[in-house]
Nucleic acid binder design. Structure first.
Lengths: 141, 141
DNA sequence: AAATCTTTGCAACAAAGTTGCAAAATATAA
DNA sequence: TTATATTTTGCAACTTTGTTGCAAAGATTT
């Protein structure tokens, strides 16, 4: 388990440190997107605020995680699938935000359909944010 | 011109004040989405920072404007079409961000196509963020 | 195991957003 | 129109979020 995680870091030419291992495993354990604040809480102030910021930044640069902008002006991060790598980042997928539990999921398997743009507008990338009720919350009813 | 703007405020049961008129007209004049900072600059510090925050908040609550989350963690605001009203807000439209001039447009006329959700996920609303080159910038080449 | 390079934590700072409150502006009533 | 009630504004203080420089600690390389 820790070995696997370390392997990801090695592949991306990053030193293997405590904070990187712990934060990366947190992402793996939870399946959903995490905010900076979530990580701070979940790691019980084991690491400095600044370290978490820098770790997230590094991960995002390497394409290990990607950021998801949200309506309330906070950034979430989620693990990327294998396609994402440094430089070219595949953001063409769907994010789902649950109205009830507010969890954000990264729905990797759904692709964004083709779209007709107005004259003069050239589309390069697209990100879709869906709001609704997630599988956990609809099961609870 | 000012009359029309005042009418919008009246319809929404808001007192007619200088800041509200000026900020609302700014949105009308520019066609695109604006950040808090843009408004501060464009009104030449005529109003306090706090007033602008509160005005935007009020407008958003009344459905006069809507907020657009962006990748760099700043919130933009844009005028709503008539369908938007307090409570139920139609966010089912497309936002276009230009790679070159960084302007954000609200493409009201394009609808988001139907989408197959994974089992258990119920979709209520969707917002699509498209990135590319806008008509101004592709014309300049 | 020593030397080199990278990462971390601290402190200080900067930017963004919020809250309480008195003064000013707007709306309502007479 | 004027007086009264209500709402909004601006200020100050504060909180929250994110950034930067730098010395110490940790990881990597030889």
């Amino acid at each position: 388990m820790e070995k696997e995680t370390a392997e990801i870091l090695r592949k991306n030419h990053l030193s293997i440190t405590d904070s990187r291992i712990k934060i990366l495993e947190l992402f793996k354990r939870k399946g959903n997107a995490l905010a900076h604040a979530d990580i701070e809480k979940q790691t019980h102030d084991l690491f400095d605020r600044v370290t978490i910021y820098r770790t997230l930044q590094t991960f995002a640069e390497k394409g290990i995680i990607h950021s998801i902008p949200t309506a309330d002006n906070s950034v979430l991060y989620a693990l990327c699938k294998d396609e994402c790598s440094e430089g070219k980042h595949a953001d063409n997928h769907v994010h789902f935000i649950c109205d009830i539990c507010e969890t954000t999921y990264c729905l990797d398997h759904i692709m964004i359909p083709e779209l007709q743009m107005p004259a003069g507008f050239k589309m390069k990338q697209a990100g879709l944010i869906v709001e609704g009720i997630c599988k956990n919350c609809s099961a609870k009813k």
